[in-house]
Nucleic acid binder design. Structure first.
Lengths: 219, 219, 219, 219
DNA sequence: CATGAATGAGCGTTCATTCAT
DNA sequence: TATGAATGAACGCTCATTCAT
């Protein structure tokens, strides 16, 4: 769990405002174009620094990308950890709802980070794609798996659930729901009334309800 | 929804074998590298045609891409239509299982088409990203929505389900499950025992079961 | 003894005048700056072609350099071969004189080729430096060695000469003498009266005489 | 001939150990890569000083290079002077042999200096190439010329020798022989049994013998 | 004085696109 | 109609040099 900051001392030594400006520009560039099609030229122009400086800080395009995506992963992990700790002892479905709400707040308040996160999650468009992809996916999946195991233990959930498969399914919906939020922010969504970025709170209730009770009609 | 063929009359006039060779090369290039990082030079070399010809047929890189992804979408639509027709009258969960199986077969037999499809779905890495993205998403979602509405009508499903939200949730899991298959094909997956590309048939049963019954423990 | 031309078919297909213009520009650039410090930008400007074209022809800077130096080596080899054939049967020192004269004419008439040749000979400043260096050096050295062996056989030379060492020594002086000519052409020489570019004919006689009789005073 | 030290007073004022560290790093960089391809960034890192300091001392890359090659030339001159003084009164061929041996020892013990020296000698890969080239060449040539004149005076050598041309020829072989040593050190030589870096002592005898007696067979 | 962060021109190379043949 | 040679802007990256601290 290396602190991403310590690997680029020159960058760390900059003033926080400048540092943030650079990170935002990188986030925006990678978020908009993905890793391969992102342009370092465009990026430095957006950040208002010289090309030489950026390469001094991060060495290579891949180095910068790694830094950015690791920062984002740390953010996500920190968020999930705090949700887990704050909801310890609560029933499973309350916790699930909290996770959805926290994710929603993350995509809303840090849309550029969300963009990076979903790009990587869904395409592996990154240097060393598979390693990164697995790292990113595993992190939130393990978290959800933990919640499921705990839910089975406390009797909230059916005992015959496979935690691996269940967590995968939960993760699918969680990620897709949050992706819809960030697509809306990026002006990439259709934005119609059946889009999850419309009335997201009701969406959350519905999602939780569906997972609780299933689809089938009962007598 | 315009027939993709009619937009490029010069291309349509070619012999089918040559046409297919070009489409395959394009599929391979865009599937491997995504839209932004794909190279027309490499593509042309792989297809064994001249650069001039390709641009005559499709005008621009974006034009070619649009054609390719529309072809893929047509494939997907055709597949879904055939599943719908073949399962008409069957219970909802049987139909859902058939959809999953058909998708699985599609990603296995046409992995390059799947690559295009999932790239677009998840990243909008395409020219005019938002329009394309919406089109692609809407197609399979409308299909699932139709299944849900039918399921409610026949009494297989709870009457209080919101078809829009339910179809969104189903689509999330369906797409993510199939993406995992193609990631495995692209050697981008971790491939561990908790990966959906391991024993996919059992995954399908599990997914269907979970949607049917929900997560909650019942007395 | 591969024909250097056949490796770059696109280049070979150009009009001879354009081809020569490109080769001259490359010769000039590499001759003036060596391989490492030569600039492809400057080169294309000098040649009056686009950058893309040059890379289409030769693939890489190294590819262009290899072509240029191989052309030069072929020129040198052809020259030496023709001298050998035309002087077959003549006494050793007459042949040596002819070699010097032929070299002199080469550096005078094709100074850019000479520049490449001497750069490579003396510094190995080339891609795959040692391989190229050895190739270039060996070619003319083997030639001189052949002359020595023949001279010993015919009784023109002392029987106790080591052909390897003798040819090395002859080559040293030959190359240095010719280098002085090309340095003069490149305006790099001091040009004083003791410079071999002044009255080169008399220099040739002197060199031959010295090798014939040695330095020592005899009674 | 200006003392190279006095041109860079800031540098001269440093402690000798630091000064030497800087010179060694510069020697290493220029020796390995030549002037054009040498990197001040790499150099500074190797020397362990700041970039600003280096430019304060020497102004420009060219300035530093000039200083370094002048130091090397001074080394060479000092070496030759000491050989001349130590062998005063000895016969010409004994002195020539001593020169060869001293040169051999120089290239072996100070290969980086030798690299600088031979690069400049053979290619003019230096700023203000022609001036530097002439200076370097003239120095050792004048020395050999002095030996020849003395040899003629003492009757060791033929009276009809032209000292200019003779010294040029001797210098050609001397330089080329020593270059072969440094190429071997730089791993640029073929290293075969006919290479002068193999059994250099026997090569020296052979060279001296050849110059003494010439090539011609005598009755 | 000494530092090392900042600069932006320049590097070799590839790109999508055009157009004379 | 089909070709593939030509283009020059843009790519990721390194350079020698400057200058605020």
């Amino acid at each position: 769990m290396a602190d991403p900051g310590t690997r680029h001392p020159r960058f760390e030594r900059l003033e926080p405002t400048l540092r943030q400006r650079i990170l935002d520009a990188a986030l925006r560039e990678f978020g908009r174009f993905g890793y391969g099609a992102a342009s370092m030229n465009r990026l430095v122009e957006g950040a208002g620094i010289s090309k030489g400086a950026l390469f001094k800080y991060f060495g290579t395009k891949a180095g910068l990308f790694e830094h950015v995506y690791r920062s984002t992963m740390e953010e996500v992990k920190t968020l999930l950890r705090s949700v887990r700790d704050q909801t310890a002892g609560e029933p499973f479905f309350a916790r699930l709802e909290r996770v959805l709400r926290a994710g929603l707040e993350f995509t809303t308040s840090r849309p550029l980070s969300a963009a990076i996160y979903y790009r990587v999650i869904y395409t592996g468009d990154a240097p060393h794609g598979n390693r990164i992809l697995a790292e990113v996916q595993d992190s939130s999946r393990r978290f959800l798996r933990g919640l499921v195991v705990e839910g089975v233990r406390t009797g909230d959930l059916r005992a015959d659930l496979d935690p691996d498969r269940t967590s995968f399914i939960l993760q699918s919906v969680l990620d897709r729901f949050l992706q819809a939020q960030y697509l809306e922010f990026m002006a990439l969504s259709s934005g119609g009334p059946s889009d999850p970025s419309t009335a997201p709170d009701q969406w959350i209730s519905h999602i939780v309800g569906l997972f609780r009770d299933g689809l089938v009609k009962r007598p």
